[in-house]
Design a binder for these strands. Structure first.
Length: 434
RNA sequence: GGAGGGAUGGCUGAGUGGUUUAAGGCACACGCCUGGAAAGCGUGAGUAGCUAAACACUACCGGGGGUUCGAAUCCCCCUCCCUCCUCCA
């Protein structure tokens, strides 16, 4: 959520920044400002009325104490009409505030000044490229062929169980997935200083609103119903990312300044409806309804958040380096950025069987956009003021596509997969073969 | 799912209709005292809205609604926590 004060004081600046994003929301800004003005006007009136009522009520109390009952009754009648006005004016204020806030929740974050202006993915500047692409002396297979030959994933039965977009990992495939998860968690806890948490995979609506997932992307979520009780539907949702529960851990709390930075790492499955998305319906593991991910979350001091973003990207890159994968880091331009982000780096891993890069990580600084929605604050030591921390999230990394890049990159001429050294202790083999 | 008990400031804990602008205590800040500290004494201090700022004012006792001139206090609904029963991995 954007700062209402900023909208009031610098509407043109906000309008201009919003216009750089995909799907300009600037028109809503005017409406928010109108509603805000109405609210403030009505609020001023109701506060005056309440002040009058409060002092009158005190006088009535005093009159009753002096046993001047008749006078008291007369004043009561007077104040009663005041009360009716207050009820009415209060209602107007509440309505204006509700409408304003509902609209405010639909405005995306403002891009940071350092973010390149652009329209879509084609305008994303490339920051750096790492590693060399594998060179094959034979005809390399794609991950679908490899998974079927080595029986790593049973695509047909995954679809039989849950429909297209769901995977059944089998044998060494299931073990590889599990090994990757543990490798990632150990890396980030032991080498990068994150605290591991294991969150719920179902969260309340307030958590989805907190991270900016709702109200805009309601159609992308799986809603849960408890048993036959239809009234529970729409209260709880399967998480689209561990960001939803983990970023909300300290919602409605006031953290001590010296607690910052807070760094969490969490494994979770991620559930995405992908309504209207291209590429579902074809086989494979690139875009699916359920995938595993290890997520990084940081809650940091506002002065430090852009340094923390840089180190977070490095943490995610380390994953790909250890696994011997070629990748590049790009910076999302204003038109391609996600809803809550002020600045985002994407990491894309090279998948030889696809002949393209696949996005396996997205690291964003959301600044105070989420903490304001969550009412998460920290107490500044110097003066005791409660301020909004900055919240960052990053994949470290998403698994299914990492799996694809891994098997496609490390495939051998005999059809086996060479396991990178970093992973061998977890999988307890250096090779997967038929 | 059933029965009962709870939710008050950073923490603890009083408060069943009117100087409660929420007592007292702990912790906190400043001052006095001291060679210095502790103890003691004194003073201050919640969050937010409004304001250029300050004063004033308004709101906030889990959330929402109601009764009343006036609600932390009375009534209704909801959420969460605790105890017991039931069920269960």
């Amino acid at each position: 959520m954007l700062d209402m004060k900023l909208l009031r004081d610098h509407p043109d600046f906000v309008r201009e920044r919003l216009a750089t994003r995909h799907g300009d929301e600037g028109a809503k800004l005017t409406e928010v400002l109108t509603l805000d003005e109405r609210r403030r006007a009505v609020l001023a009136e109701t506060e005056q009325l309440k002040a009058r009522r409060n002092s009158a009520s005190k006088e009535i109390g005093a009159l009753m104490g002096q046993k001047k009952l008749e006078e008291a009754e007369a004043r009561k009648a007077e104040v009663r009409t005041l009360g009716d006005r207050i009820t009415e004016v209060d209602r107007l204020a509440a309505e204006a505030e509700e409408a304003r806030d509902a609209l405010l929740l639909t405005l995306p974050n403002l891009p940071h000044a350092s973010v390149a202006l652009g329209k879509d993915a084609a305008d994303n500047p490339e920051i750096r490229v790492h590693g060399t692409r594998p060179h094959f002396t034979f005809n390399p297979l794609n991950h679908i062929e490899l998974c079927e030959k080595l029986k790593l994933v049973d695509f047909a039965r995954g679809t039989k169980l849950s429909g297209s977009g769901f995977l059944l990992y089998t044998g060494w495939g299931a073990r590889l997935e599990r090994a990757l998860i543990q490798f990632l968690l150990d890396l980030h806890t032991e080498e990068h200083g994150y605290t591991e948490v294991a969150p719920p995979y179902i969260v309340g609506e307030h958590c989805m609103i907190g991270v900016g997932q709702f109200p805009k992307f309601r159609d992308q979520a799986y809603a849960v119903q408890e048993g036959l009780d239809g009234s529970t539907l729409g209260k709880l949702y399967l998480i689209p990312t561990a960001e939803a529960p983990v970023a909300n851990i300290h919602r409605e709390e006031i953290l001590a300044e010296k607690q910052l930075p807070v760094r969490y790492v969490a494994y979770s499955p991620c559930f995405r409806a992908e309504a209207g998305a291209a590429g579902l319906g074809t086989r494979g593991m690139i875009r699916i309804h359920q995938f595993d991910k290890v997520e990084l979350i940081k809650i940091v001091h506002p002065d430090r958040s852009y340094d923390e973003l840089e180190s977070m990207v490095v943490h995610a890159e380390t994953v790909l380096q250890r696994l011997g994968l070629q990748y590049r880091v790009i910076n999302l331009c204003t038109g391609d950025m996600g809803f809550a982000a002020a600045k985002t780096y994407d990491i894309e891993v090279w998948a030889p069987g696809q002949g393209t890069y696949l996005e396996v990580s997205s690291c964003s600084n959301c600044e105070d956009y989420q903490s304001r929605r969550m009412n998460m604050r920290y107490k500044r030591e110097s003066d005791g003021h409660n301020l909004l921390p900055h919240i960052l999230n990053g994949s470290g990394t998403a698994l299914a596509r990492l799996f694809v890049a891994l098997v496609e990159t490390h495939q051998q001429e005999d059809g086996s997969i060479r396991i990178p050294e970093a992973l061998q202790p977890y999988l307890r083999t250096d090779r997967i073969s038929a």
